[in-house]
Amino acid sequence: ELTLKSSDTHPDGYPTVEAVKHMGKLLKERTNDRICVEVFHSAQLGQEKDTIEQTKFGVIDLNRVSMGPFNNLVEETKVVSLPYVFKGVDHMHRVMDGPIGDDILKAFEPHGYVGLAFYDGGSRSFYNKVKPIKSIEDLKGMKVRVMQSDIFVDMMTALGANATPMPYGEVYSAIQTGVIDGAENNWPSFESSGHYEVAGYYTLDEHLIVPEVLVMSKASWDKLSAEDQAAVRQAAKDSVSVMREMWVAREKASEEKVRAAGVEVITEIDKAPFMAAMDSVYEKHVTSDKLKDLVARIRSTD
């Protein structure tokens, strides 16, 4: 009866797209065909900034988005976008699956969204065409493309690199021709964008491990009965494990392809100086008591 429209900027077959489809399948079974989900993948309904607004206005019901566009809207999401805040992917899972994750999901509600679940966004690392980055000194003066976000720009500046915002579509030729020296991303994007063809050095510093989030429009949510709300929330939670399995497989496949292409992957790297350089970024962006408390809680999670 009721079809929930869901948006995703990733293409069909991508782990997040498949996860939301899986959620729809579960929901359909559990509500006896009353509620199903229709996924609009490949940014058909717009870029994330647009679909976030559309979700708020109730034009679409579900939305899988990255945290970045929410940073200046829902303060709590900033904390997971901080560089080196997590010790690794497993640590991120433990934090987001626990009470801290629940608190962040709840923080969406006053802004017109219902936070349902966190998906993986992988871990972002630096790649470039000039030289292997083995220490923080190697990054000095390098022109690195980052997303248009204050935290990311400040992080690059703190590392001594030259943060260069640029539309994603221009990055390939920009690296190829030398407008910029490199960029940063996770394994699957490094591979699918073809950037590995032009950037031969990938340094696994994992500076950002930012989960992605599935939110529902508060307007659509309020139309559901309490029972259906519970069913939606549960189906979303249940889709997370499917997503994570697919993500690991995808990451592995991308890694194999990139390594086979002869990209030099730098794994042995002392992250301590990188983390130490982040003090100024934390000082500037972790300003409220709420954020300070969240950072402290993440740091004290095993």
């Binding site: 579509g169 221009e170 390939y172 030729s173 021709t177 964008s193």
Partner: peptide, 9 residues
């Protein structure tokens, strides 16, 4: 096309 094609190409 989703901004992923090289304009130079």
């Amino acid at each position: 096309a989703g901004g992923r094609l090289s304009i130079a190409d």
